[in-house]
Nucleic acid binder design. Structure first.
Lengths: 413, 413
DNA sequence: AAGACTTTTTTCGAGCCTCGAAAAAATAGT
DNA sequence: ACTATTTTTTCGAGGCTCGAAAAAAGTCTT
């Protein structure tokens, strides 16, 4: 049962609304905030005064907002970059990277290193991560301590974003990263699926295109998906969900890395395309060592002539297209962004994808099916993590009357 | 952007909360409502006094609440059955039925008739419906006028629940039932998918089992689905969505009623089972005239010996099972209720369903997969419509300070 | 049977919050 | 310098929820 609304919740929610409006708009005036939130000018005035006093927002210098209009000039409100910091970390195949981000979303520091994720021991994996984050946060104590960590992983997390349940990059399972990092660093942590973070980032990058309903599909060694429906990130009931790569394309079909058969990934993952292009059986054990260079070369050959390579891409497109079509039967069509190295070969996939979608329930609204490609996934994932962490701070910490950094504003005391 | 919370929204939302608590609990005391909503006793006292004055709630007679405890006895609050009425209508193959329901959910009047939905003209279909609802509402004027109509149809509606976009029971498309009924009867109307209403009803019938996440699957001539995720009815971005029957089971597979190939329905719909059992080609035109008696007989023969009939049910179960498995890859497992005549043959389907699910991503959590069967769908659909209509009245009308029936309480004037 | 005890419900004043209207502030045009 | 215009702040009114205390309505005990 939904909880009742207390009187003090009201202020909290409206504070959150004002912060969100500033984060979204960049440098909005109070009047602009009033109109986007629907709250009265007086309320916005009161709330923004509080937020400025607390060091969460800051007023822009006069003239920063091009006006040239008559009347009292608007004063833009911005996020105070020094109000807080957050940490983002991305754990992917053979690579671990992390960064400190300030409250305005700017990069403060970063670090990354290669890591043999497939063979490293469980303890070493954990301690490498802990060590990197300790280095990043060293010297940040007291009010300078980061307020949130978001760790993105390839694979499945639990619905509460606390445990990595399974990942293709390591044999180790059920690693409670959130608990570990909270204990070691004392900073609240969320563990998120990388594709979900991609979807979050798309929404911030291009809100016009990626608004209420859209899909991000990661094409790489495996196939991942992040799905936003009615403005909310779609997650499973127990896990991060959205395992599009393991929707069944052909029952009893090709052997998948997950051990099952006929998954979309078993036709469209890098290893599957490679396997098909090299004339190996669909039932042969998935090859782990397919490198990005191999795929680039494969794509070149597929473009050069209509041989087994092109056929392999066709099969991949067919699997993806039928999968999308089935998804559209459930959720109706929505724009799709293909992300990752595989998106660089999208020209080879697209005809087969479109042909397959046309054979499905999604085909009837083919006008609404827009594709977009973004070959480089890491920046997207990072940005998604950063926004995830920052909106957490916005809504869960700064929306209460939290004294952001009292020392910065000692003059008001 | 989410709208700001006004001060007067607060009362409205808390009124809605109190009404919802009473509808859910049956005869709760004020103290009980306070604890389920988290609001204070004083607030509940004030709100319920208002609601009683407005004739929306009523106090139970003393002693109706078994207490036997010490202390001042609790006074149960109930919905005032006379506070309002709503209309539910269900349009299904060859049958149209409608009923008037009072505010407490009790049946006031009902009517149903057979109708050759497959051949009737568009205008006749509309006027039959309008006529029936006019008869039901005749004499109910002024404050006795029903406050809401919910019409359930087999097929696809738009996301705003105003238009029947497509239905298997009639060749006519895009009938704006909501607009038509609102104009003819002057009562706000919603057009809903029948399976979605089944899901709504399950939640009211057995909240322990069907709580936050579950699936209702209708097995009849076609295959429908109603899905509740995180406590919300799942709908598509443009339509009622959840067209589980048209998820692709086998690309380029059996011919479906929808004209496409390989849909789950083309294996598991009545016509598909019938077609397979009679040794017809999977690509032969779907038979429209398969009657429930035919299916009953088919099931008998399938139970009697392991012939083509049993094989047909196996194929159906295989399609459903793979479909469920793929769905579980996206949303994680959830309890499933199989509804409709096809559920009466669930014993024939279940082994193949379970075997197929085990081959998919859903298989890993096989412990969480609970099946339930409900052969009679019409009462479920009706109940879902009724609850849908009543909660609309609760939240959209009675949550504002709406004078429910001033005449009933003239004494307070 | 009267008083003690217990639990539910109502009453009442305090404290917030939002809102609208009016005032103040700050600039461009004339 | 003065007017027009637009933004922002101020101020009082009205509502809402809350906690504490009081009132109500029984059961239990002696």
């Amino acid at each position: 049962m939904t909880a009742g609304i207390r009187h003090d919740d009201l202020r909290r929610r409206n504070r959150g609304l004002v912060i969100a409006a500033v984060r979204r708009a960049g440098l909005p005036s109070r009047t602009e905030i009033a109109s986007t939130t629907g709250l009265s000018h007086s309320t916005i005035s009161a709330i923004s005064a509080d937020l400025i006093n607390e060091g969460i927002l800051a007023e822009a210098k006069a003239g920063e907002l091009a006006s040239a209009r008559r009347g009292r000039p608007q004063v833009g409100l911005s996020l105070n970059a020094d109000a807080a910091t957050v940490i983002v970390a991305v754990l992917s195949l053979n690579e671990l990277s992390a960064a400190t981000i300030n409250y305005a979303g700017g990069l403060v520091a970063e670090e990354s290193r290669t890591l043999a994720t497939a063979t490293i021991s469980r303890d070493d994996l954990i301690s490498e991560l802990v060590a990197m984050l300790c280095r990043l946060t060293s010297g940040m104590e007291g009010s300078a301590r980061p307020l949130r960590i978001v760790l993105a992983i390839q694979g499945i997390t639990d619905a509460d974003a606390r445990v990595m349940l399974w990942s293709p990059i390591t044999p180790h399972r059920d690693i409670p990263f959130a608990e570990i990092l909270e204990r070691k660093l004392g900073i609240p942590t969320a563990v998120e699926n990388d594709c979900n973070m991609m979807a979050v980032a798309l929404r911030w990058r291009d809100p016009a295109r990626y608004r209420a309903d859209f899909i991000a599909i990661l094409l790489s060694h495996g196939i991942g998906m992040g799905l936003v429906l009615k403005g909310n990130l779609f997650t499973g009931t127990r896990s991060s969900g959205g395992e599009f790569g393991h929707v069944i394309h052909r029952p009893e079909g090709a052997l998948c890395r997950c051990g099952r058969r006929g998954c979309i990934e078993a036709y469209a993952g890098d290893y599957a395309i490679w396997r098909n292009a090299h004339g190996k059986s669909e039932f042969s054990t998935p090859e782990d060592g397919v490198r990005p260079e191999d795929m680039k070369e494969l794509a070149e050959r597929a473009r050069a002539s209509d041989g087994p390579e092109r056929e392999a891409y066709r099969k991949a497109g067919n699997a993806i297209g039928y999968g999308i079509g089935s998804l559209f039967a459930l959720i109706d069509p929505a724009p799709i962004a293909f992300v990752g190295a595989g998106a660089a070969a999208f020209d080879l996939l697209e005809p087969a994808i479109r042909a397959a979608v046309a054979e499905t329930a999604g085909g009837q609204h083919s006008d609404a099916i827009a594709f977009d490609t973004i070959p480089d996934e890491l920046p997207l994932i990072r940005q998604g993590c950063a926004m995830r962490a920052l909106t957490y701070v916005d809504q869960e910490i700064f929306s209460d009357g939290y004294p952001a950094s009292p020392l910065l504003h000692a003059d008001i005391a």
